[in-house]
């Protein structure tokens, strides 16, 4: 299966054979899980989301068309699932406690450096928690998944301009939270040639 590309694997699934399921999972589960984990900030919910996304991938395989990248389609399913989850549960997350509970101990760092890193992670998770769902989705897909604004727009079901604004607003909030820099909003009107 490893030598087949995504489209070929999906064609097999579309023909009713789930044999490529494991290979597809291996290719994309890490990206899907990490996206869901950062979006939802809850490891259990991210696990459920990952499982659900791959089940939906098989169940609705006929809705996947070769024109789009499989990763974009899977991120769309994940984003929909996460938005539903957040809407339903109004998930008042535990502000990073979950992160501490689930991140594996690093094997290479000294205990002090390890604690430092945990603190950094906690701080970033807290900062991500300050964002609106739309902003968090956009910044996570942009910063951590490296997607273009066009791809994010497709996943989020909005315009590229809206994505640009969401990422910008998210960066404003994160900058204040992470660097303590609360300037922003100052104006200058420097003339450009």
């Amino acid at each position: 299966m490893k030598h087949l590309n995504d489209q070929e694997l999906m064609s097999i699934v579309q023909a009713g054979d789930f044999a490529p399921a494991s290979e597809l999972y291996d290719r994309y589960s890490s990206r899907i899980y990490n996206f869901a984990y950062r979006f939802l900030r809850n490891s259990e919910a991210a696990e459920d989301a990952t499982q659900e996304v791959f089940v939906k991938m098989l169940k609705h395989a006929n809705q996947f068309h070769g024109g789009a990248k499989l990763s974009t389609w899977l991120f769309s399913i994940t984003a929909n699932h996460c938005r539903d989850y957040l809407r339903k549960s109004e998930n008042k997350s535990k502000e990073g406690e979950d992160v501490l509970a689930t991140l594996p101990a690093s094997a290479e760092l000294s205990p002090e450096r390890h604690m430092e890193r945990r603190e950094d992670e906690k701080l970033i998770q807290k900062a991500l928690g300050l964002l609106s769902h739309d902003q968090r989705e956009a910044i996570v897909l942009s910063r951590y998944q490296g997607l273009s604004y066009a791809e994010i727009a497709q996943i989020a079901g909005c315009s590229e301009g809206a994505v640009k604004t969401r990422v910008f607003r998210a960066m404003e909030v994160l900058r204040k939270a992470l660097t303590g820099d609360s300037r922003g909003g100052d104006r200058c009107l420097t003339a450009m040639p």
Partner: peptide
């Protein structure tokens, strides 16, 4: 400040499934 924020965000590691 943007560059610094962007770098700080990089400290959130990938989590193994």
């Amino acid at each position: 400040a943007y560059k610094e924020t962007w770098l700080i965000l990089d400290k959130l590691p990938e989590v193994a499934v």
